[in-house]
């Protein structure tokens, strides 16, 4: 009995010892900043003189809810994400379906498709900026085909930045989704398709009745990650826009706005509030997404 007690307690000690990195990380880099975020959102606090912080109650929150630029940035990112998610879903699922059919050389294609994933956003954006710019090959091609009449400076446009960035991000990230979908497709039991064929189901019916429902875990995972990551877009716009997101604020994302408020205007309290508002929006979107995808089954 004593021996047993001793054994359990030593396992407990080891357990906490091994968990220590997480416990410390959780306390120092998650809990405390989370508490600080709420605290700062009720303060008018300047990074340069933090001792002069004044309590402003829910002033920052009211300002945030009324701030047209903040909502413009939220609109922009939703506009961007709706295009990005649809486009990437189509490309990655389509290519996964094609890759599944390929026996020889599938590895080569997979490797090539992963090139954009491993390069940094910084370098990819430098290349893309030039490619899609007014002197770049994409616009020259569109001019010769006749889709464009004159070269455009899309970063100064009212509506173009977000769709164009969505195309960039699809190019950059589709391979991850593709490989996740491919894994899902390969794990689907082939007999299901055989049985469906015997029942006279066509390719489309098979796709909608077997493939899509069985890919649900992968789709749910990919969509959740898309929203959490995509809503926080920063480097892409920071590389090519000023901190206002261009003359029409059409390149302004919430994180760029937060950066501008926190590190350019130095109002950390307000920037904290923006971070909290954005986190609330992301959480609401994630919950809605789960509800929609789970209802469909």
């Amino acid at each position: 009995m004593i021996l047993l007690f001793k054994k359990i307690s030593s396992e407990t000690i080891w357990g906490y010892l091994f968990s220590l990195p997480w416990i410390l990380y959780f306390l120092v880099f998650l809990s405390y900043p989370l508490f600080l975020a709420f605290k700062m959102s009720f303060l008018d606090i300047n990074m340069v003189q933090p001792e002069k912080a004044t309590f402003v109650g829910i002033g920052n929150w009211i300002e945030g809810i009324r701030d047209p630029l903040f909502w413009k940035s939220v609109f922009n990112i939703l506009y961007n994400q709706s295009i990005f998610i649809a486009l990437t879903f189509a490309i990655s699922l389509g290519l996964a379906l094609l890759l599944k059919e390929v026996t020889k050389g599938a590895g080569v294609f997979r490797t090539i498709y992963f090139l954009p994933v491993v390069t940094s956003v910084t370098t990819a954006m430098i290349i893309f900026d030039f490619l899609a710019g007014s002197g770049g090959p994409v616009q020259k091609m569109l001019l010769t085909v006749g889709i464009l009449n004159a070269p455009i400076n899309w970063t100064f446009d009212k509506w173009l930045p977000m769709p164009i960035l969505a195309v960039f991000n699809s190019w950059k990230w589709f391979a991850i989704q593709m490989i996740i979908f491919l894994g899902g497709l390969l794990s689907i039991n082939k007999e299901l398709y055989e049985a469906a064929k015997v029942d006279g189901a066509g390719k489309w019916t098979q796709f909608f009745k077997i493939t899509l429902p069985l890919l649900k875990p992968q789709i749910l995972f990919v969509m959740t990650m898309n929203v959490i990551n995509g809503m926080q877009m920063f480097t892409e716009v920071f590389m090519i826009f000023d901190l206002k997101g261009g003359p029409y604020n059409s390149g302004l994302t919430p994180v760029l706005y937060l950066y501008e408020q926190g590190f350019n205007q130095m109002s950390m309290g307000y920037a904290s509030t923006i971070g909290l508002l954005l986190a609330i929006i992301i959480m609401i979107m994630t919950i809605i997404q789960w509800k929609i995808i789970n209802r469909e089954s």
Partner: peptide, 19 residues
């Protein structure tokens, strides 16, 4: 904690590390 968007903690973490 995986559901917490990183951006939420950016400003307070900066303030903490600055201090």
């Amino acid at each position: 904690s995986m559901m917490i968007p990183g951006i939420l903690l950016l400003i307070p973490t900066y303030a903490m590390l600055y201090e």
